[in-house]
Each structure stands twice: as structure tokens, then as C-alpha cells.
């Protein structure tokens, strides 16, 4: 049912096994082409050998920095707070318990449906366009939510805006962090490099969950949302400058472009 990853197999010197799996997927010509293509990205000294020093190579370090940035952006763009502290936020916006429960269900539904938007657009628009558009719009919406809390215009408008941002996040940063992270590292060290991004994601999650009550207490609701807006805007500019488009390219072409 689940064969070993063909790229790991080639890296580990098991080309025959990789060829068999690829042949089952796309025929002989595809299998031969892929094995050869993957093989070209792995020098003889790298076969069946893991060199963690590779991670310190300057090109790879830059890609790891991009992964860690995306991890923090995904976690600190504020949506986890909306989800974890939904009841506090909706209470602050002036809703009772029953109304809150409905809104929490609405959050789940919006997140679920948004994934389909990603599925239908990720190979057409690409990762870059979706991420840039979403981070920019999220910044604008956070600005409005902060404004709502600042002027005391909360209520339904805030809930709708919050759901808009949950949707934007769920169709962009939530899935595409993992898509991009799984694409930008070279075959020979993808496992370690990608896992560093995943570890950073948990670290960022931990820091956010623990610091949120204190941050909110100190700066208040309005500033809190403006802070997330600022984070999203920073994310937009950093990604605009540093995020490569990986749509439609083989992992090997991406590797030659970014780490070659």
C-alpha cells in the first residue's frame, strides 16, 4: 500500500526498487527518466550516507531560514489564537455562550471548506500567488478587526471578519507551509532540513500559546489584532522577496535552481 519514498530509495542506493515503484506509477519511460534525474542530484559520496554538515552549507542555510520564517509566520499570523481563544474573543465582542458555540462550529466548517479552494487553485495560481494574496488580505482584515475593537464597533462585523481571516489562513498558510517546506530542500538532506522547519513550527506554537494571555493583557484586544496585521504584512514583504515559485517543477529542477 505504502511503498518507500522513491527519492529516499535512490539516495540510499536502492535504484532498482525505486524504478519498480515509478514504473507502476507512470510506465517505463517515466521511471527511467525519474531515476536518472534524481540520481543526478546526488553525488557518489552522498549515496547511502547522511552528512549533517550539509545543513551548514550557505545556500541550504538560507532555505532553512525561509522554512523557519514560514513556520513562525504560520503560527504567529494569529489564527491559532482565534481558534484556541475563540470563546474569549467572541465574549469580548459581546456574544453569549450559545451564540459562541455556533460560531466555533462555523470556524471548523470554514477551515474544512477552504482546503478545497487550495486543492483547486494550487497548481493553477501556484504557491507564491496564493500566499502573497492571502497574507496581504489578512493584514488588511486584521487592521479592520483591530479598528472594530478600538472604536467599540464589535458584534457581527467582527465575527464575519474573523471568519474571513480563518478562511484566508486555511487556504494559504495552513496547507502551503507544508507544501513549500516539502519542496524547497535538496534530495540528499530533505528529511533533516524539512524536520527543522517542523520543529520550528512546534516551537512557535508553544511560544504563541504561552505568551498570548500576557500579550493580550498588556496591549489589549485592538493592539493585539494590529500586531497580527503587522506580522502578516511583514510576511507578505519577506515572501515577496524570498519565496520561489515551485509549481509544476520536479523536485530536482527546484533543487538545481535553489541549491545547485
Amino acid at each position: 500500500m505504502v511503498p518507500e519514498s522513491v527519492r529516499w530509495l535512490v539516495k540510499n542506493g536502492q535504484e532498482t526498487k525505486a524504478y519498480k515503484i515509478l514504473k507502476k506509477m507512470g510506465g517505463e519511460e517515466y521511471a527511467a527518466f525519474e531515476v536518472k534525474n534524481i540520481r543526478q542530484t546526488i553525488s557518489t559520496e552522498h549515496v547511502a550516507h547522511v552528512n549533517f554538515k550539509e545543513l551548514l552549507n550557505s545556500k541550504i542555510l538560507k532555505l532553512i531560514a525561509l522554512g523557519v520564517f514560514l513556520a513562525f509566520l504560520q503560527q504567529w499570523s494569529g489564527i491559532n489564537v482565534v481558534i484556541y481563544y475563540a470563546s474569549d474573543i467572541f465574549q469580548a465582542a459581546g456574544f453569549n455562550l450559545q451564540e459562541m458555540m455556533v460560531q466555533i462550529v462555523a470556524i471548523g466548517l470554514v477551515m474544512f471548506l477552504s482546503v478545497f479552494v487550495t486543492i483547486f487553485t494550487v497548481e493553477k495560481l501556484g504557491r507564491r500567488k496564493i500566499l502573497l494574496l492571502a497574507t496581504f488580505l489578512m493584514a488588511v482584515v486584521y487592521g479592520l478587526i483591530g479598528g472594530g475593537f478600538y472604536t467599540g464597533n464589535t458584534g457581527t462585523t467582527v465575527v464575519v471578519l474573523m471568519l474571513v481571516n480563518v478562511m484566508l489562513y486555511s487556504l494559504s498558510l495552513a496547507p502551503l507551509f507544508w507544501v513549500v517546506l516539502s519542496e524547497i530542500y535538496p534530495n540528499r538532506i530533505r528529511g533533516a532540513a524539512m524536520s527543522i522547519g517542523a520543529t520550528a513550527h512546534w516551537l512557535a506554537n508553544f511560544l504563541l500559546t504561552f505568551s498570548f494571555p500576557a500579550i493580550k493583557e498588556t496591549i489589549g484586544w485592538a493592539n493585539n489584532f494590529w500586531l497580527y496585521g503587522l506580522i502578516c504584512l511583514t510576511g507578505f514583504f519577506v515572501l515577496f522577496r524570498f519565496l520561489p515559485e515551485t509549481k509544476g517543477k520536479t523536485l530536482e529542477d527546484i533543487e538545481r535552481e535553489l541549491a545547485g
Binding site: 519514498s5 522513491v6 529516499w8 482546503v115 478545497f116 497548481e123 507544508w178 507544501v179 509544476g248
Partner: peptide
Amino acid sequence: ALNLVPMYISEIAPAEKRGILVTINQL
């Protein structure tokens, strides 16, 4: 799992479907 599944899918997927297939994990 959260980390290995996208890594794994990305490494077995044909290039033009990779984004969709990795997003299936999110679904």
C-alpha cells in the same frame, strides 16, 4: 506524522500534481 506525511507524498508525487496531493494531508 505531521512532518513525514507531506515529505513522503511530495517525494512520490508527479510534479504537476504535487501541490494537490500534499494538500490532501491537510484535508
